[in-house]
Amino acid sequence: MTYRVHLYRLLFSMEDDLFRIKKAERVQQLWKVSVVLVLAAIAIYLWMAFLGLGTERISGIAVTLSDTAYETGKLWFVLGRVLYAILFAAFILFFPSLLFYLLTGIPYQKLIIMQQVVLVVMLMERLLWIPLVIFAGLNWQVSPLSLGIIASYITEMPWVIYFFGAITLFQLWIIWFQVKYLAAFLEMKKIVIAINVILLHLIGWCLTALTAFGDIYILSRWFG
C-alpha cells in the first residue's frame, strides 16, 4: 500500500489518514512536501524581517550608525532570518522524528509526516505573530495565546518569559496531536506516551528560550 502525503487530511480527517499511514508500505511526496515547508518557513521569516519584526535593537541605535553600516546591519539581519528559518524548519522536521524513531521504532518517514503537520501548525502560529506585533505591539513571548504574558507580570527575567512564552495553545494542540499520532502505532498507555512527549517539549521550550535570549545577546554584541 502506498500513501501520498496530504497534510490537510491529517488536520481535518485524522482517523482515516492515520489508518492509511499505519498500513502504508511506501510513502510518496514526503521530500517534496518537506522542501515546500522549508520554503514556506523562509518566506514567512523573510516577510517578518522586511516588516521589521525583531529589528528593534538595530532601529534603536540607527541614529548612531552611518547609512552604510545601518544598511549592512539590516542585510545581515535578513540573511540571519533566512538561515534561522532553514535551520528551524529542518530541526522541527527531522530531529524530533529521529528521537521518536529511536524511542519507538516507528518508521522514520512516517514520523516525518507527523512533524510536517507540527511544522505547518507552528508556521501558522508565526503568521499570527505578525498582526499581534503590528496592531497590538505584542511580541511572541507575550502573546495572549501563551503563558508568557502571565510570566511577564510575575518576573522581568527574559529567559523565564521566553520559556513560558513558548508554551502556547498551538503547542498544547501539537502535544495532543503527537500523542494521538504515536498512540496509533504503539501498544502502550496514552499517559506514558504523553509523559514522554511533554518531556521532549520541555526540552524544546528550554532551547527556544535559550535561542531567543542568545539572539538578543548576539544583536547587542553586533550593534550595541
Rank of each mutant, 00 (worst) to 15 (best):
G52E: 07
T55L: 09
E56M: 07
R57N: 12
I58N: 09
G60I: 09
A62M: 12
A62C: 02
S66W: 03
T68W: 07
G73S: 12
K74F: 09
W76H: 11
R81T: 03
L83N: 03
I86T: 07
I86P: 02
L87P: 01
F88I: 08
A89I: 06
A89F: 13
F91Y: 15
L93E: 09
F94V: 08
P96M: 12
L99A: 10
F100T: 09
T104K: 08
I106T: 10
P107C: 00
P107Q: 00
K110T: 05
K110D: 03
L111S: 05
I112E: 09
I112C: 09
M114V: 10
Q115R: 09
V117R: 01
V118P: 01
V120T: 04
V121E: 02
V121Y: 13
L123Q: 10
L128Q: 10
W129H: 14
W129N: 12
W129T: 06
P131W: 02
L132F: 12
N139K: 11
N139T: 10
W140K: 03
S143W: 01
P144Y: 01
L145A: 11
L145Q: 01
S146C: 04
L147Q: 10
L147C: 11
I150F: 14
S152F: 04
Y153R: 15
T155Y: 04
T155H: 11
E156T: 14
M157F: 14
P158M: 07
